Simulated assay, not measured.
Amino acid sequence: MEPEYDRYPDQEVVWRDIRFAPARFEVWMSGQKIKSGRASSIITITLEENGLGYQGLGQVEVRHNEAALLNLLSDENMFDMYGAQGNRIVLATVPTQTNARSIDMTAMQMRWPHSRYNYDFKSDEPYACSLFMLNQRISKLAFHLDNPEKLVEFYVM
């Protein structure tokens, strides 16, 4: 059962850099857990004030060094925008035209402004990353990937 994560009433998020030391990870495809294990990685989430990203606000970089996942998930990932969505903070790259065809990407293209015109994601490159917080501390982090569609999740416990 999912915990009652912090909720965010609007899409505005005041950014702060995060270091996250998860205890475990899971990889999901087609509703099935295909891999899991103890995490040994430190995940860093940093706002890069590089003038890129949506409306020049900077991109968010997420890095990990989880050796067991390096063939499934790129160790350096850049996202063009971020915002709150219900019980999560979402980091995303939302192109107008893309090779990502998941239902989640389609929904994001309808709800969020497009951050790029055309972009094709590599098989190990996520289009979104969701941060779930408990009492303003990260509890779960989920990377959303396509080609093939999969979910890579890191947990505190």
Rank of each mutant, 00 (worst) to 15 (best):
D120E: 08
E12F: 03
Y82W: 15
H114F: 10
G83P: 04
G86W: 12
S74V: 03
R63S: 07
Q85L: 07
A107L: 11
A39K: 03
S36N: 12
A21Y: 01
Q11E: 15
D124W: 00
V27S: 01
V62L: 15
A39Y: 05
G58F: 06
A100E: 15
A23L: 12
S40T: 13
L57R: 15
S115C: 12
V27L: 09
D10P: 02
L69H: 01
E76H: 03
D80P: 07
D10Y: 10
D104K: 09
E76T: 11
N50R: 08
G37Q: 07
I45K: 06
R38I: 11
V13R: 06
A67C: 05
H114M: 14
V60A: 01
D75E: 04
R16A: 12
G83Q: 07
E26W: 04
Y117H: 14
V13D: 05
E125W: 00
L69W: 01
F25R: 03
A21G: 07
D120A: 00
S102M: 12
T96F: 11
Q55T: 11
I45P: 02
V90W: 06
P9T: 09
Q32L: 11
E76P: 01
D104W: 15
A68T: 13
Q59E: 13
T44N: 11
Y117R: 12
F121D: 03
N99M: 05
A21E: 00
R19C: 10
D124I: 13
L70S: 09
P113W: 08
Q59R: 15
L70T: 15
T93E: 08
N71S: 15
Q109F: 08
P113D: 12
M78D: 12
T46R: 06
A107M: 14
Y117P: 04
T106K: 12
S102W: 03
